[in-house]
């Protein structure tokens, strides 16, 4: 199966899951789950669609660093 198609299908599933999960009143749990889904989706787009998987590992670390710091601060603010 085409990897782009598989990535797209996963993105659709995760986006729909985020949408449905957000309707739950779960406070910090909902925040963490939605941010986790977001990080996975960013990873899927970056690695497959943007082909970061072919790039030097430094670019992967830089993107990972930005996303981790962003997610960490947002969670810390909301705790």
């Amino acid at each position: 199966m085409n990897k782009n198609f598989l990535t797209w299908a996963l993105l659709m599933i995760l986006t729909t899951a985020s949408y449905l999960f957000s309707e739950r009143d779960g406070g910090v749990t909902v925040l963490i789950v939605l941010l986790l889904f977001t990080v996975i989706k960013i990873g899927l787009v970056a690695f497959q669609f943007m082909e970061l998987k072919k790039a030097h590992v430094a670019w992967i670390w830089m993107l990972g660093f930005v996303i981790t710091v962003y997610g960490g601060i947002v969670i810390a603010i909301n705790l």
Partner: peptide, 21 residues
């Protein structure tokens, strides 16, 4: 194409924070 996917990435950050949480 990479520029276009960047728009995806930015929206993926905006969507949950503005609309879902």
């Amino acid at each position: 194409a990479s520029f276009w996917h960047m728009c995806d990435l930015i929206w993926l950050i905006l969507f949950p924070i503005l609309y879902l949480l």
